[in-house]
Simulated scan of single mutants.
Amino acid sequence: MSAPKYKAKSKINWSKIFIIGLLGLALLAFILQSIPSSGRSQPVAQQQPPAQAPAPPPFTDEGDLFITDGETGEQKARVDIELAQNANETAQGLMYREEMGEDEGMLFFMPTFEPQSFWMRNTLISLDIIYLNEQQEIVSIMPNTTPLSEAQVPSGVPARYVLEVNAGFAERKGLEIGDLMAW
């Protein structure tokens, strides 16, 4: 007969106890956060008023743009233009502006000659969006855009430049595809 075997005393696994304790504390914190806070003050971040839209930048006249009839060369319109020549200026565009002068607009220089698309996010006024090719010829006119819309306003054809003017400008000035612009 062999000698009886004794069971070794089990060791306490402190790492498991520590992990279980942490999980318990996390669960308790979650439960306490979900209980309505009657009488408790809200965190400072929740007490602050919502952020206001930034003040619109003033119009900056950076040049004159002339639109001429593509067949006769007769001048149809002149526009004071503000330029959007880099990614930041293009992203800002005419956002937050509440008005723009009758013969004012913004000219965008796109990095590539390809179909372009704009939207009216944070744009408070309706615009005509006029797309131009590399020869500065009108290739597409998207009139009377919807303010604050995130719907895409596509050129439908490749464009290199984009002119934004007040809604109805293209119709009032008789602008057509094939008209030329120079600035």
Rank of each mutant, 00 (worst) to 15 (best):
I20Y: 10
I20G: 10
I20W: 12
G21M: 12
L22G: 15
L22W: 13
L23Q: 04
L23V: 14
G24V: 11
G24L: 08
L25Q: 09
L25D: 01
A26R: 04
L28K: 04
A29F: 11
A29E: 04
F30S: 06
F30V: 15
I31T: 10
I31N: 09
L32F: 05
L32R: 05
L32M: 11
Q33K: 11
Q33C: 08
S34V: 02
I35V: 14
P36Y: 13
P36E: 12
G39Y: 00
G39Q: 08
Q42H: 03
Q42S: 07
P43L: 01
P43M: 00
A45V: 08
A45T: 07
A45S: 13
A45M: 06
Q47L: 09
Q47E: 04
Q48D: 01
Q48V: 07
P49F: 00
P49H: 06
P50Y: 10
A51K: 12
Q52H: 12
Q52L: 15
A53T: 08
A55F: 04
A55M: 06
A55V: 13
P56D: 06
P57V: 12
P58W: 04
P58A: 15
D61A: 15
E62S: 07
D64C: 02
F66E: 13
F66G: 08
I67S: 07
T68F: 03
G70V: 03
G70E: 01
G70T: 04
G70N: 03
E71F: 07
E71D: 09
T72F: 02
T72E: 02
T72P: 05
G73D: 05
G73C: 09
E74F: 00
Q75D: 07
K76M: 08
K76H: 05
K76W: 02
A77E: 03
A77Y: 07
A77Q: 01
R78A: 13
R78W: 03
R78T: 12
V79D: 05
V79T: 11
V79P: 09
D80S: 15
I81A: 02
E82N: 06
L83W: 06
Q85Y: 06
N86Y: 10
A87N: 12
N88W: 04
N88V: 13
E89K: 10
E89Y: 05
E89V: 07
T90M: 14
T90Y: 05
T90F: 03
Q92F: 11
Q92E: 14
G93A: 11
G93P: 05
L94H: 10
M95L: 04
M95H: 01
M95D: 00
Y96M: 05
R97P: 03
E98I: 10
E98V: 10
E98Y: 03
E98T: 14
E99S: 15
E99T: 15
M100F: 05
M100P: 06
E102W: 02
D103E: 14
D103K: 13
E104Y: 07
G105N: 03
G105Q: 09
M106P: 03
